[in-house]
Simulated scan of single mutants.
Amino acid sequence: MWLALTRPHDGRSRRGGAPSSSRRMHMCRRRACTREPAVAYPLVVIHLVARRVRPDHRDRVVEWLQSVDGPRRSEALESLATEGVDHETAMLIDTADGPVLIYAMQTDNRNRSLSVADASDRPTDAEHRAVIRAADDGPADARILLDLYVNAP
C-alpha cells in the first residue's frame, strides 16, 4: 500500500499523479476543485508503505538498515541524491502477526526514483534490493485513519 501525501494545491492528484488539465486541480474535501494555489511553493510528496517482514529475516533487515544509517550512510546519501530522493526513513514494528516495516520516502517523482534505484549497479543499492526483497512477506493490513493537511500560509 503506497500513500502519497502531498501539500494541497500542488497541481497533482492525492496519489502524486500528473495534473488532469493545464489548470491546476486538486481534491478539496473529496471533490474536484480548480482553485489556484494561494502560495507558490515546491511540491513535496511523501510516499509511505507498510510491508510485512518474514520473521526469519527480521534481524537481517534491522542489521542492514542500521548499517545503511551507520557506516554505509555516505553511500546511501549518494544513492538518494541520484534517485532524486530528499528524505528516506524506515521503522520496524513488532506485532503479534510478525514484524512490519514502515518505509517513507520524500520525492517529487516516485516512479523515476524507483526506476533509478532498480537500475542502479551501486553495491549499496544491489544489497538493499536483495535484503528487502528477500524479507518481503506482502503488504501489511493497514488503512489510513487520518489524512489532514493545511494550506501553506
Rank of each mutant, 00 (worst) to 15 (best):
E78I: 07
D59L: 07
I102L: 15
P55S: 06
I102Y: 13
G84C: 04
I102A: 06
D108A: 13
E83Y: 11
L48M: 10
R122C: 10
N111P: 00
L92F: 00
S120Q: 08
I46D: 11
S113Q: 02
V61A: 01
D56R: 03
A117E: 07
R133M: 08
R122D: 15
H47G: 14
L65Q: 11
E88F: 12
D136H: 10
V100P: 00
I46S: 12
S67E: 13
L101S: 05
I132K: 09
V49G: 09
D59S: 12
D141W: 06
D59E: 15
V100R: 06
S67N: 02
S74I: 08
R51F: 07
Q106C: 09
S113G: 11
D97K: 12
V68K: 01
P139T: 08
D94N: 09
E83H: 09
S113W: 03
R112Y: 12
D59I: 07
D137I: 01
H57P: 02
Q66A: 15
S120K: 02
Q106R: 14
R54F: 00
D59G: 07
R122V: 09
W64I: 02
A96Q: 05
A134Q: 09
G138S: 05
D108P: 02
W64L: 01
P71Y: 09
A50W: 10
S67V: 01
H47Y: 15
A119R: 08
T82Y: 07
E63A: 15
A117C: 05
I132W: 05
H87F: 08
L92T: 07
V49A: 13
T95E: 01
R133T: 15
D141L: 13
E75P: 04
P71I: 09
V68N: 01
E63M: 05
A76Q: 13
S79G: 15
L48A: 13
W64C: 03
H57Y: 12
A130T: 10
E75Q: 15
S120N: 09
D86E: 13
D137S: 12
G70I: 02
A135C: 04
E88P: 00
G70S: 08
A104R: 08
G84R: 02
D94F: 05
S120H: 02
A135H: 02
V131T: 03
D141Q: 11
E63L: 10
M105D: 02
S74N: 12
G84I: 01
R133Q: 15
S120M: 04
A50I: 02
S79P: 07
R54E: 10
L65K: 08
R110Y: 14
S79N: 14
R110T: 11
E88R: 14
V100Q: 08
Q106V: 14
V100A: 04
H87A: 10
D86I: 05
A119L: 09
H128P: 00
A90T: 10
Q66T: 12
H57A: 15
V85D: 01
